[in-house]
Amino acid sequence: MILEARRLGHCYVGGVEALRDLDLAVPRGQRLAILGPNGAGKTTLLLHLNGTLRPKSGQVLLDGRAVGYDRASLNSWRRRVGLVLQEPDDQLFAATVFEDVSFGPLNLGLSEAEARLRVEEALEALRITALAERPTHMLSFGQKKRVAIAGAVAMRPEVLLLDEPSAGLDSMGTAHLLAALDQLRQAGTTLVFTTHDVDLAWSWADQVALFHQGGVACQGSAESLLSDRAALAAAHLKMPMALALGLKARQLGLLAADQSLPRGRSESLALLDRLTPPGQ
């Protein structure tokens, strides 16, 4: 486990309990979806996972060791664990894309030349090299989102935390974003993202943690957890359409047990096409 939360508790001012005895384990190199309804505290959890918020109780572990909240610990923690908020305007402050992405690398204490390299690499990874000189305020929402991610990626984190990465994006925007993130994962980055969308969690996560009432109700592989009707119902969630269809296709013998289940809309529609009318 690269990152872990143990018995995490957090109250907001006014006594609203956001996290209660929360346990979470982030396996290295995988994509973990934290799935739950809005306003349940998913964002608060992410802010704890990179040390932006300090828990009232419990601890966060990096590589099995509890991390401290002194300046040096926080510094190295944030180098290793990057965070991308839901709203890109909450993270972008500089006038142009290039300038903005260079903020993190310079904070790492890198030389100008090295920082420049990191920026170019991050822009490349998110496929926004062409936007480098663009003013931040003239970008579309989807572009801003990618710039915000590039700003985190330029710090070369081992773990990247993403809050509702697809929120506000249309299907094309989401597809582009996920493709870029896939590239990062192939390069070894561990990805943790929150979502309220079971279809997104199924289409893109290796592991899923069900967030419910301030804690993680259960965590497991995407397939085992999202096909568990009882667990889903307890968290007021429904099964992803693609998964339900895939399981049915297996049951009907259209999909062998070793064939992979459809994850996205295209695969599902293709599988649906293969259902044949009786007698054919």
């Binding site: 802010l47 990179n50 932006t52 510094n75 944030r78 180098r79 990057g82 965070l83 908020l85 709203e87 305007d89 909450d90 993270q91 402050f93 500089a94 290039f98 300038e99 903005d100 260079s102 903020f103 993190g104 310079l106 904070n107 790492l108 100008e112 920082a115 420049r116 920026v119 700003g151 985190a152 710090m155």
Partner: peptide
């Protein structure tokens, strides 16, 4: 919110960027 977002990017008081 921007302060929170920048803290996550290592904000230590200055807003240095590459020009």
């Amino acid at each position: 919110r921007l302060e929170m977002g920048l803290l996550a990017r290592g904000f230590d008081g200055s807003l240095r960027t590459l020009m």
